[in-house]
């Protein structure tokens, strides 16, 4: 059977691809281009699809908007708060789960549970956990003599609340990926190290960590990208507000607010493209190092 592309095969392929491509072109590829142009529309009637003026004003508006910089700063704070902690905790748990222990499946299921739940619903549950007067968190802290914290109403604590929720929600995903990575490490390294008298910590530090670094790298980039896009948690935890005094306003919340709150599609598109650029840079870093760091 010859396997060269022919016109006949191409026609046949078009029929198979048509349903998927119609949807993808209309709702993924066209909007990427359209959004880019929209970010330059300064005077625009979207109902009639008429553009009266174009320019760089939208980008000027966001770069001069202190709220935009604040939301960018908050998002970075969120990324820095979530990613390293989440990676360390999930690596430790995955390493423990990779030992010869009973109930491994059960533990894995438990840690993964939050991942399949609705962000909105669990955020509302956490709203109740964070309740300053009757929440369980303050109750437990009270047992250690810590006085009640206004988690959701004090601007200082709004971001930490968001970070706690996000770590809890995403831990299971990282653990599963780490476990898959750990299972790829040849057990003979550990055996050899044991014979040479290396302790558990030395084995972890000198075998697990370096051999796992491609996985760790993958998880950190995915976590960074996803943390940059945080929105549902903010919206649900603070009841539609971006936290007390805007202390938990993230970039996507800013985009949402410009788009759906102020109906300024041009500015919202410009902000969305800035977010895209940030994520694009991290993706390039991943592609670049992903090829280099390979054992």
């Amino acid at each position: 059977m010859n396997d060269k592309p022919t016109l006949n095969k191409t026609l046949k392929a078009v029929l198979y691809l048509l349903p998927a491509l119609v949807i993808i072109v209309t709702f993924s590829i066209y909007p990427i281009v359209k959004s880019f142009f929209m970010s330059f529309y300064t005077d625009y009637d979207y109902f009639k699809d008429l553009v009266y003026a174009r320019g760089l004003d939208n980008y000027k508006v966001i770069f001069e908007d202190p709220e935009f910089w604040k939301s960018l700063g908050n998002t970075l704070l969120f990324v820095v708060g979530v990613v390293p902690l989440s990676i360390i905790i999930s690596l430790v748990i995955a390493t423990l789960l990779n030992q010869k222990i009973k109930f491994r499946g059960l533990f894995r299921t438990i840690y993964f549970l939050p991942f399949v739940t609705s962000v909105v619903a669990v955020s509302i549950v956490w709203r109740w956990i964070f309740h300053s007067q009757y929440g369980v968190l303050n109750y437990f802290l009270g047992l250690f003599g810590i006085s009640p914290i206004n988690w959701l109403t004090d601007p200082t604590w709004a971001m930490p609340s968001l970070v706690i929720l996000a770590i809890w929600k995403g831990l299971g995903y990282n653990i599963i990926i780490f476990l898959a990575g750990l299972q790829n490490i040849n057990q003979q390294y550990y055996l050899a190290a044991k014979i040479d008298g290396a302790g558990a910590w030395e084995r972890f530090k000198n075998i697990t960590v370096p051999l796992l670094s491609p996985t760790t790298f993958f998880i950190s980039i995915v976590s960074i990208i996803n943390s940059f896009k945080v929105f549902d948690e903010v919206y649900a935890l603070f009841g539609g507000q971006p936290g007390p005094a805007g202390s938990a306003e993230t970039i996507v919340y800013y985009i949402y607010n410009k788009f759906y709150g102020e109906w300024d599609f041009g500015v919202a598109s410009a902000a969305a493209y800035v977010l895209f650029l940030v994520i694009f840079i991290f993706t390039l870093i991943q592609l670049y190092f992903g090829k280099k760091v390979n054992y």
Binding site: T26, I255, F276
Partner: peptide, 19 residues
């Protein structure tokens, strides 16, 4: 196109669906 965050698609898709 998988790299593009969904947030970028939000506004044009809203316009398309409105039309």
């Amino acid at each position: 196109t998988m790299m593009v965050p969904g947030e970028v698609l939000l506004i044009p898709n809203f316009v398309t669906l409105s039309n």
